[in-house]
Computed example of a mutant assay.
Amino acid sequence: MPRILVITDHGDVHVPPVAEHLAAGMELTTIDTARVMLGEDLSFVQTKSGPRVFYRGEHLDDVVSVWYRKPSPLPETSIPVAAEYQTYAWSSLDQHGKSLNVQFRDATWVSDYYSLCRAKPKAGQLATAQELGFAVPETVMTSSENLARKFVRDHGTCIAKPLAVRFPHGKAMYATLVTTEDDLDYAGIAVDPQILQTYIEPATELRVTVVGGEVFAAEVHGGEPQRGAGGLRVRDWRAGADTFWAAPARVSADLEDKCRQYLAVYGLRFGAFDFVVDRAGVPWFLECNGNGQWLFIEDATGQPISQAMARLLTGGARAAPFARGRPAPRTERG
């Protein structure tokens, strides 16, 4: 029986809506590599006929596609070994789990793990976007107190974003507006490098989700900037849990083509793009997440993203009919 393998947290809410749209006879298996230490054994065997993978004692055969979503991060301090072996055990489990990312070479990966790694650094994203003709805000990524001060002083109003992808427990870090009048502790940038960008006054903001060659554009809004920690103004629609809304949007064929070209540069089959559209109607590229969240967009707009993902995983390519009607958002954004 053809099998689709999903590498993600077992509680990933993106999986069931896609599973609903898989053709009869397709088997779906979810692996969370962080759960190996809990007894969900994972083995790689090299035989005369080639590599074989076993999960919980079952041979994973006939894998036609692999969906690399969001596996749980390995805990760094709670592995059930003595304290002096924590780092050793973490390294062993990490390397073992990553062996999964080089299996199933004949399968369709959405997307290839190492392509995702190459596409992740923000500096590379901005350079690639600019090369493809996207408008890109003037940006500095720095750990230099002096350069950060100068950038804000030269531009007056800027957006500051963390480079970190893992945050303190129970906290979220959002993009914030900063000006020369804000009392900022630039000295802390040495241990918390930041992205600083010129502020683009938004007429609207877009989330453009690309699944294979299918493009789903949505206008997103999270309310007006709110005061956050230290009195700074949060300027990030992800922070507007109570005021967030999204609606289907029309974008130019040129923008759609550039998004597809961007994914092709990195060898990705999926991407969640964020744009801010200025008062003149110019869309400015902010970032692309190669395995970003999209179910909250489907929930809010009715766009059939889960159906498109099912088609991609099973090799289908026909155009998707527009479907409305999922209830309120049920997943995180990012």
Rank of each mutant, 00 (worst) to 15 (best):
2 P>Y: 08
2 P>T: 14
7 I>D: 02
7 I>F: 08
10 H>I: 14
12 D>A: 08
17 P>V: 13
18 V>I: 15
22 L>W: 01
22 L>Q: 03
23 A>C: 07
24 A>T: 04
26 M>Y: 14
27 E>V: 08
35 R>S: 09
37 M>H: 15
38 L>E: 15
50 G>D: 11
53 V>C: 12
55 Y>F: 15
56 R>F: 01
57 G>C: 11
57 G>M: 04
60 L>K: 02
63 V>G: 09
63 V>L: 04
63 V>C: 07
64 V>Y: 02
66 V>L: 09
67 W>P: 04
67 W>C: 07
68 Y>W: 12
75 P>A: 12
79 I>F: 06
79 I>P: 01
82 A>E: 10
83 A>V: 06
85 Y>Q: 14
87 T>C: 03
88 Y>G: 02
90 W>M: 07
95 Q>R: 09
98 K>E: 13
99 S>F: 09
102 V>I: 10
108 T>R: 14
111 S>H: 14
113 Y>R: 08
114 Y>H: 13
115 S>Y: 07
119 A>E: 02
119 A>K: 01
120 K>M: 12
122 K>H: 13
122 K>M: 05
123 A>D: 09
124 G>A: 13
125 Q>C: 01
130 Q>G: 07
132 L>P: 04
139 T>G: 10
141 M>W: 01
147 L>Y: 05
148 A>L: 03
148 A>T: 00
158 C>Y: 01
158 C>G: 08
172 A>H: 06
174 Y>A: 07
180 T>V: 11
182 D>C: 13
185 D>T: 03
186 Y>A: 09
186 Y>F: 15
193 P>W: 04
195 I>H: 02
200 I>H: 10
202 P>D: 04
206 L>N: 09
207 R>T: 11
207 R>Q: 11
217 A>R: 03
217 A>K: 00
220 V>D: 05
225 P>S: 15
227 R>E: 15
228 G>C: 11
228 G>V: 07
228 G>I: 08
234 V>K: 09
242 D>T: 07
242 D>Y: 04
244 F>Q: 02
248 P>S: 10
249 A>H: 08
258 K>I: 03
265 V>T: 06
266 Y>N: 06
278 D>I: 10
281 G>W: 06
282 V>P: 04
285 F>Y: 06
286 L>A: 04
286 L>F: 13
287 E>C: 12
296 F>Y: 12
302 G>N: 07
305 I>L: 15
306 S>N: 05
310 A>V: 01
311 R>E: 15
311 R>Y: 12
312 L>C: 01
314 T>P: 00
315 G>C: 07
316 G>S: 11
320 A>S: 10
323 A>Y: 03
327 P>Y: 12
330 R>S: 14
330 R>Q: 10
